[in-house]
């Protein structure tokens, strides 16, 4: 792998939050390399710091020790260059803006002209299969549709890196399956680098090229599993022995992580 393809490089990253109940050790000695085109899942129990790690990459938190590089810059420099698109746990759509208005928000901020704004919002809406919903307000959409708009919003300015924090966590199983399949197809077409936080084993196994298993607080990386699945995937594949073996290995890792406490 050549050096210029390194998207995220974390070395001995530590994070201690100072709270009123005393210090909380959220992350400890995180070493992580993410290359261009990787689909990385961060999986672990609640409170293991996987979201925090994502926020560190996004420069929404600062590490208290170690070093992180994003595109060979500090996370702050990368953020100022708008290097990534972030998808939150909740859709986080602005309720006073229509679907189209929400999609244009990042473009307005980045000073992109009006015709280009219209073109791109139309394009990403097609990508998430929501054409025709431009004029709807968020409350008129189902939870799954809202989350698709939120993914589309992160795609409008075409970032090479997508940071996704349990984007499908609040959705029911069936909608979640649909979105997983849909999102996998999107990734196949664009080959963006994705860092994806989840606590669902099938989701991690289905989507990722690499699965990072994390332990309870203080969050540590226990295992990094290279996916053995072919690049082209279908939902049916989840019943194959290969898929089950992969899931099993993730589960083993998670169990090992729990034995810490």
């Amino acid at each position: 792998m050549n050096e210029s393809a390194r998207v995220v490089d974390a070395r001995k990253v530590d994070l201690v939050f100072q709270t009123s109940d005393g210090p909380v050790h959220a992350l400890s000695e995180i070493d992580l390399e993410i290359n261009k085109g990787d689909f990385i899942s961060l999986i672990g129990p609640s409170g293991c710091g996987k979201t925090t790690l994502l926020r560190l990459i996004a420069d929404l938190e600062k590490p208290t020790g170690g070093d992180i590089q994003v595109n060979e810059m500090t996370p702050e420099e990368a953020r100022l260059q708008r290097a990534y698109g972030y998808v939150f746990q909740a859709p986080a759509l602005y309720p006073w803006r229509t679907v189209e208005g929400n999609l244009k928000l990042p473009l307005e901020i980045m000073g992109i002209d009006k015709t280009e704004q219209a073109r791109r919002s139309k394009e990403v809406l097609e990508m998430v299969d929501l054409s025709g919903f431009e004029k709807k307000f968020p409350w008129q959409l189902s939870g799954g549709m809202q989350q698709r708009v939120s993914i589309a919003r992160a795609l409008t300015f075409n970032p090479d890196l997508m940071l996704m924090d349990e984007p499908f966590g609040a959705l029911d199983e069936i909608v979640r399956d649909q979105l997983n399949e849909h999102f996998h197809r999107l990734w196949e077409e664009t080959h963006k680098t994705v860092v994806f936080v989840t606590h669902s084993i099938p989701e991690a196994a289905y989507l990722s090229t690499k699965i990072v298993v994390m332990s309870q607080r203080p969050g540590k990386i226990i295992d990094i599993i290279e996916s053995t699945l072919p690049e082209k995937r279908t939902l049916d594949m989840r019943d194959t022995p290969e898929f089950l073996a992969l899931s099993h290995r993730i589960r083993e890792g998670l169990r090992a992580g729990h034995s810490y406490d």
Partner: peptide, 19 residues
């Protein structure tokens, strides 16, 4: 979360205010 979103876009203070 809405404020964090603005931060990920590197929005200025005045953009965060108006939008």
């Amino acid at each position: 979360m809405h404020l964090d979103l603005m931060k990920t876009y590197n929005a200025s203070k005045s953009q965060t205010f108006y939008k």
